[in-house]
Design a protein around this nucleic acid. Sequence first.
DNA 1: CGTGAGGGTGTAAGCGCTTCCACTCATCCC
DNA 2: GGGATGAGTGGAAGCGCTTACACCCTCACG
Lengths: 342, 342
Amino acid sequence: MANSDESATIYEVAQRAGVSIATVSRALRGTGPVAAKTRERVLRAVEELRFTPSRLGVSLASGRHAANGIVFPDLSGPYFAEVLLGYEEVASELGRSVIVLSTRGRAAVPDLVRDLAGRVDGMVIFGQTVRDEVVAEIAASGMPLVMIARGDAVAGADVVASENTESAARLATHLLGHGYRNFALAGGHDQGDISQRWTSIGRVLAEHGITPPEPSPCEFTVDGGYALGRYLLSAHHHSGPRPDVIVCADDQVALGVILAAEERGLSIPGDVAVTGWDDIMAARHARPALTTVRQPMRDLGARAARALDELINGVRDTPSSQVIPTELVVRASCGSHPLEEA
Amino acid sequence: MANSDESATIYEVAQRAGVSIATVSRALRGTGPVAAKTRERVLRAVEELRFTPSRLGVSLASGRHAANGIVFPDLSGPYFAEVLLGYEEVASELGRSVIVLSTRGRAAVPDLVRDLAGRVDGMVIFGQTVRDEVVAEIAASGMPLVMIARGDAVAGADVVASENTESAARLATHLLGHGYRNFALAGGHDQGDISQRWTSIGRVLAEHGITPPEPSPCEFTVDGGYALGRYLLSAHHHSGPRPDVIVCADDQVALGVILAAEERGLSIPGDVAVTGWDDIMAARHARPALTTVRQPMRDLGARAARALDELINGVRDTPSSQVIPTELVVRASCGSHPLEEA
DNA sequence: CGTGAGGGTGTAAGCGCTTCCACTCATCCC
DNA sequence: GGGATGAGTGGAAGCGCTTACACCCTCACG
């Protein structure tokens, strides 16, 4: 009731229960023996004082934060939100709080990450969000680390990624089956694990005697896709013919490209086919519905949380690397296909 | 280099610089006078030891966490992600970390919230995520509190909400202008600030001599909207005629309703008009594009972060309440309207 | 040249908890 | 019956920092 501002401390509980703080601590944490009667008295005092142990005290003494960090390059769009959802859910189940950090637009990223490192028992970092040397520094300091959506391994860190190479090949093969030959790739390859996709697509094209195009960089947003779409679909941007299929690095870019195509009066997939990646909600509802590769975004987050927990609890000390399967989702934006219509 | 596992402490820095820990602290935090030469020596030692002050130590001693909490009912869908984006961005600028908590599917919500309270200097809570008595308990403990998307005020807490009443009236008026008379409302009113919208729409309908329908509850997801849509559009679910317009509590529900309508072979807006709320990305790309009310989701988060900062820093001690304007976005899903086409 | 005002620094007391260690009794067994 | 055992408890030392408070020393000033 009169629990005005500051919360009670363990000393007040101890005094009220007529025991020492050591006993209170033992009674509450279940470490060490406590007589049933004593425990009861302690619990009653806790109840009456509405005592909640100070996290700072606990953490400082025990050396554990019971918190995980997660570093995003950005928080916009459905992809990151879904990963966060899966991550938070599992972390919370495991009794860990989640501290999020988005580096988008922030200047002193290394400092922010270091600060985060001081608040958590382990952290998850997205792809190339943080410079490799900073990641290495963090890892070297003994902080459990899980990298998400990264093609290559990182010393001392787990990696959780979704499958890219095979699914990209499947997508490319499918598109070739439609008869498309003049590919454009929308989205640079410096981000996350996307270069894997381009490489794989390139290989399939080469196998079919097609020279793989260079991916055109753009921001991974609808606006970014729109801008790039306008450019790719303009009649005179390069000597060759207009692409008959634009493979986009993610669904948002694809949606932007579709917008640009519509604006130019081009029909999809009649004049140009478009594909995305991720299978965000809008992909299913878009006009035309977007052919894409479904990525298990929540699962990505959930697995990262579990892997991190293993690392933190020392269940495992050798870094593991897991790849989560993806699924090609064929919809209208890549044209109707004999095989799919069956 | 040999910074093996544990990070250096202030004691090691002090020893290396040949000063006391008090001086190190003063030099680093700029509190109290320190001779230029001494400061330099301290800074060099800090550099050499790669010293980063332990957050726990700092927080315990200073009584501040430099962290904010935010409690979501759920993290799925674009709405919450956007709010988080705005929130994190501002909080980070203000030098505060963000701890997220999603109560979706979690049992002991009050405990989770209390734990969160022990980790932060202030927190933001969404609508009715947490029981009022728990909110009151937190507020009474002196924790700075900002409520988001809540119609009514909460003792001792700021409120940041987006405008509902006027925009709902505008939407209803617009739909009446289309000639629709048989309204259905999709989405219960126990969530967040949505009842404000239903009330406002009901008033407008009543003014036009139409008996306002009872909102049909459903989950605020595409699937929830789909299920409800099937029900509302089934020929025999109630005696009256099929609704000619379904006003949905949010865009996801609306997308689900559209799916259900398509499945029934109904055309939108020809057979039935559909409207959403929020203006998420998919609304713009949906087929037909969704008429909706744009809610400034990022701004909601950003303002909450700023309000919370004011509360924490004691700039303001009287709770404030702000309402952010929204915007009616007319697209194809409610039919073409003479006024809009001009 | 004496004195007071600071600048500059160190000492030590916390902040709220966990946990090692020592200690006290009952209890048990040979 | 005596010592070993172990359950139950308290004392106290940290965990890494901030910050009164006391102290010393150097000047400027009268």
